[in-house]
Amino acid sequence: MSGASGADFGQGQQAQGIHMKRIGKAAWAAGFAALCLSGCATQEDVVPVPYKVHGGAQTGAGHAVALTVTDARTQDRTKIANKSNAYGMEMAAIRADRAVTAIVQDAFEAELKSRGFSIGGGGANASVAINRFYTTFQAQGAMGDVKLHVSVTPAGGAEIYDREIDVMGIEPSVFWTVGNNASAALSDGMSKAFDVLFSDPAFLAALEKGGSSSDIKAGS
């Protein structure tokens, strides 16, 4: 009787042990599932934001343009995007490897030079205020929100050109919310912004006029 009870007790302990192992495995599986849902988005990315010059007609004819780029962002001022997890929560920051003012200035200067303008004083003063430079990750891809305010002032004169540029760059069909996808969307956004700007005859006229102070309307 007591032997049988001892065997039952032993079997019970063994069964309990197996049961505990199963619960342990299930807990690990639940933890793994939760980890998969949350994603590995806790490490910051620091990435370059490259820019490919589009170029255009040689309208510059050596006219000098002094360029000033300022950071006028009012939100997301220390980063260019955030990684996000499966729930859409903002996780680690994605940062540019240099100041956004330098990124935009270099891209703008490259576009000016490719059209025959020279960079320097003595001609028009072009000012660019960066109001937004941030990528969000959405179902359709990475969306690079680029908002610039561009104005042109002749040397010693009043402002002759003024325009808000609001474009959305896209890096389609991205799966990972990582730095390279964020920077690709912003590169596309910058391309679109400068396409809009340099396709505006009033902007080119304002740059060419340089020292003149006659009024030129954006988009005319």
Binding site: R22, I23, A26, A29, A30, A33, A34, M89, E90, A93
Partner: peptide, 20 residues
């Protein structure tokens, strides 16, 4: 049985908060 148990635990999972 384990898979169902794991899914059940995952389904009951709550949430978490993060700041940026």
């Amino acid at each position: 049985k384990n898979i169902i148990c794991a899914l059940g635990l995952t389904a009951l999972l709550g949430g978490c908060a993060v700041h940026s």
